[in-house]
């Protein structure tokens, strides 16, 4: 737990400070191809002679940023739709149920790939696709939480006291739903991180030179044996981040294991 918090803290700090910490541009060739780690080039250079540390640092910002944006889309769109469906009921709710059923019949990652196929590869497509791919699940959970709250006495009391539907939902239901949904936002971020790094690993960001962990992991495959650090460093960064997010968002699971 403490380690997970420490790692995520470091990663977020690096993401914020990346432009000041990186000494070279992530796309500028500064050394010979595959130059070994040396003073001033702690991680060495990649196959095109670019400063690998600088690429990792800028990659921190891109990887976390893309995942964060995708998670925000999933939470915003999914949450809003689920909330509206549950509050409005009847036709709106049925339409919502039908839509999420269709979307849920395609595994999330494949849904994201289908969307990228429709829009064409690119960073905005990857972010939006992962966001929409994750939205149905979050939407379902939101609806369940809201429906449970609607059964509570104070909601009925607010309605009986003459509160309109909109007022009741914003003043009474929303504040009580948020604390229940907040931990799920972390889970959603973990999923989004896995989704965006997987899609960039597959090259769907449309730019093989992108300084992003998933794309770098893919690019490093070419020189797998002669320069394994080009693969190991991004792989380690991705794994540690996912493990940390999981450790913090599913503490009960880890406790179960520890027992």
């Amino acid at each position: 737990m403490r380690l997970a918090r420490l790692w995520l803290g470091i990663v977020v700090a690096l993401a914020l400070l990346a432009p000041w910490l990186a000494q070279n541009g992530p796309r500028d060739p500064v050394a010979s191809a595959l130059a070994a780690p040396a003073r001033g080039l702690p991680f060495g250079a990649d196959a095109l002679g670019r400063d690998f540390l600088a690429r990792m640092l800028v990659g921190t910002r891109l990887s976390l940023g893309l995942a964060g944006l995708a998670a925000a889309i999933a939470i915003g769109a999914g949450g809003a739709a689920g909330f509206a469906g549950a509050m409005l009921g009847s036709t709106a709710d049925r339409l919502w149920l039908w839509t999420t059923n269709v979307l849920l019949s395609i595994p999330s990652l494949l849904l994201a790939m289908l969307l990228v196929a429709a829009w064409g590869p690119g960073i905005p497509a990857v972010v939006a696709a992962v966001g929409i791919g994750g939205a149905p699940v979050f939407s379902r959970v939101t609806r369940t939480v809201v429906l449970q709250l609607l059964g509570a006495g104070y909601v009925a009391a607010a309605r009986a006291a003459g509160g309109g539907r909109l007022w009741t939902s914003l003043r009474h239901v929303l504040p009580n739903a948020l604390p229940q949904l907040a931990p799920l936002a972390g889970t959603q971020f973990g999923w989004a991180f896995l989704g965006t790094t997987t899609l960039t690993f597959l090259g769907l960001a449309g730019d093989p030179a992108l300084p992003e962990w998933g794309a770098m992991l893919n690019a490093g495959r070419v020189t797998l044996v002669s320069a394994p650090r080009l693969v190991l460093i991004p792989a380690l960064a991705i794994c540690l981040t996912i493990l940390s997010v999981h450790a913090l968002t599913a503490p009960s699971e880890i406790e179960n294991t520890a027992r």
Binding site: T197, F201, N218, L224, P228, C239, L243, T257
Partner: peptide, 22 residues
């Protein structure tokens, strides 16, 4: 066994696959 199970669940296939290949 529990730790292994959570590791297997969490680690992305892209990373473990590339490391296996390495």
């Amino acid at each position: 066994a529990g730790t292994l199970a959570s590791l297997f669940t969490s680690l992305p296939v892209s990373a473990t696959g590339v490391i296996g290949l390495l």
